[in-house]
């Protein structure tokens, strides 16, 4: 029997692409995707369920669909996406419900993959150059997004201890850049000028969006357990990131940076959340060797990811943003998946 996968956050960039990747895998028998928004990419056989991450719905889905693998891509790692309150609901309560649903008596779940972020390490002047997976962060979390991710990871840690029969994979991704994904960092680099904190030129690490999807697929397919940092090789100064992208840098004052940033945010000239402003001061590096030792190969280095983004950016600046080619239509999707009129195996 093939694998039966539940993807949370199907409407997110990662959920959609992960579902596309798994659809290509003949070993995957069934894919259910959960989200409150419709999928943004075209899917062939994934079943979309419009639902939030409440415990009762999740546990019913897990049992009814006999889910053996959960891919949790719904953790929000970009605090510009939602308010602090909603962030807490999604990251902390959502994860708690999901793990509770996966650990009910007789639940068929055998693997859980969680997509977290290197934000859990923070960014501080006391940091080492490279964080290994075991290295503790050097100070308490200062932002809501960091504490919510830490709390979610805490629930996962408890789950792993209580359920030794489940393969638990926790992936911590560095800042993502790529051809399509929109993050606070990519938006900052999309304009002609990007901010920097005067007197600081931190070393920053990136991971390319394609490598992220390939990594999620890799650990899911091979059942790789443990905590893994996911990031391209090397770190590069923010000034170099800007020159690769062809962006000019404008200084923010090094004292009261957040105070100075507030009016700029109001004017819409700056959308960097405070965790990114800290990153622009001290940077962050995560050691990616454990995942490589597990057999994963990256296609891009940190600088390669930036260059990839820069090429896509130049295209966008020339021809404009391409409109989405796909919009989810409930009836159309239902027709192709379930109508007796559709011939599903033409060769047979």
């Amino acid at each position: 029997m093939g694998r039966r996968v539940l993807i949370t956050g199907l409407g997110t960039f990662w959920g959609g692409r992960m579902a596309q990747a798994l659809e290509q895998d003949p070993d995957v028998e069934m894919i259910v995707g959960l989200d409150t928004v419709t999928p943004s990419v075209e899917l062939e056989r994934t079943e979309y369920v419009r639902a939030d991450q409440s415990y009762s719905i999740l546990s019913r889905i897990v049992r009814a669909a006999q889910v053996d693998t959960i891919v949790h891509t719904f953790l929000v790692v970009d605090s510009t996406r939602m308010s602090g309150r909603a962030l807490h609901e999604t990251n902390v309560i959502g994860t708690m419900n999901l793990l509770a649903a996966a650990s009910t008596a007789g639940a068929p779940v055998r693997q859980i993959v969680v997509k977290s972020s290197s934000l859990v390490y923070g960014s501080s002047f006391q940091d080492p150059v490279w964080f290994r997976e075991e290295t503790p962060r050097t100070g308490p979390p200062r932002t809501r997004i960091e504490s919510s991710l830490l709390e979610a990871e805490g629930y996962l840690r408890d789950f792993a201890e209580d359920n030794p029969h489940v393969v638990v994979t926790l992936l911590r991704f560095a800042n993502v850049l790529g051809t399509e994904i929109v993050t606070a960092t990519s938006q900052a680099l999309e304009r002609q000028t990007a901010p920097y904190v005067f007197g600081f030129d931190p070393l920053i690490q990136f991971v390319e969006e394609g490598d992220v999807v390939r990594c999620l697929e890799f650990v899911t397919r091979h059942g790789v357990a443990g905590i893994f940092n996911v990031a391209g090789d090397g770190r590069l100064p923010w000034s170099e990131v800007a020159s690769i992208c062809g962006v000019r840098l404008l200084p923010l004052p090094f004292v009261l940076t957040n105070v100075a940033a507030a009016p700029l945010r109001q004017l819409g000239l700056l959308d960097l959340p405070s965790e990114l402003l800290t990153l622009l001061r001290f940077g962050r590096g995560i050691d990616n060797r454990r995942l490589k030792d597990a057999g994963f190969t990256y296609r891009y280095t940190s600088a390669g990811a930036v260059e990839n983004f820069a090429r896509a950016r130049r295209l966008r600046r020339t021809v404009g943003a391409t409109p989405p080619e796909y919009t989810y239509e409930r009836d159309v999707e239902a027709f192709f998946r379930h109508s007796p009129a559709v011939v599903r195996n033409p060769e047979a």
């Binding site: 792993a160 905590i227 597990a294």
Partner: peptide, 14 residues
């Protein structure tokens, strides 16, 4: 560290 141990990364690595 307990989490790392509990999930034994090396044990299931292909």
């Amino acid at each position: 560290d307990r989490f790392v141990e509990a999930t034994r990364p090396a044990a299931l690595v292909p």
